[in-house]
């Protein structure tokens, strides 16, 4: 335990922000370059995780546990979001026989 805390104190808060931004950007790129709906949802999960890690880091930095409670609520929300999203994907697949996002281009205005 003491070792972990010692280890932590050498990392600037800056690097946590940079790392979370990097993972978030990777998630954004994943949403933009893929056409498979399931992989797009996985990229969204990646973005949510990056934000969670940053919230936890700030919570530890400020010594306030509200941030970690908030991360817990985001995780519950992510579980609900994934369940509904995958149900929608299954319904779309049943109607169009593909998980290509372009199968839904009639939703465009």
């Amino acid at each position: 335990m003491e070792n972990i805390v010692q280890n932590l104190q050498t990392v600037p808060l800056n690097h946590y922000i940079l790392f979370s931004t990097l993972i978030f950007s990777i998630g954004v790129i994943g949403v933009l370059i893929r056409r498979n709906m399931i992989i797009m949802m996985m990229s969204i999960e990646l973005m949510l995780n990056a934000v969670n890690l940053l919230l936890a880091a700030f919570s530890v930095h400020h010594g306030d546990s509200s941030g970690q409670v908030f991360v817990f609520f985001i995780m519950a929300l992510a579980a609900a979001e994934v369940a509904v999203g995958l149900a929608i994907i299954i319904m779309v697949y049943r109607n169009t026989k593909s998980v290509d996002i372009d199968a839904l281009n009639k939703l465009r205005w």
């Binding site: 335990m1 104190q9 990392v11 306030d64 546990s65 970690q68």
Partner: peptide
């Protein structure tokens, strides 16, 4: 640097 003010918080 990230200083843990209260290590038992999490």
């Amino acid at each position: 640097p990230l200083i843990e003010k209260d290590p038992s918080i999490g």
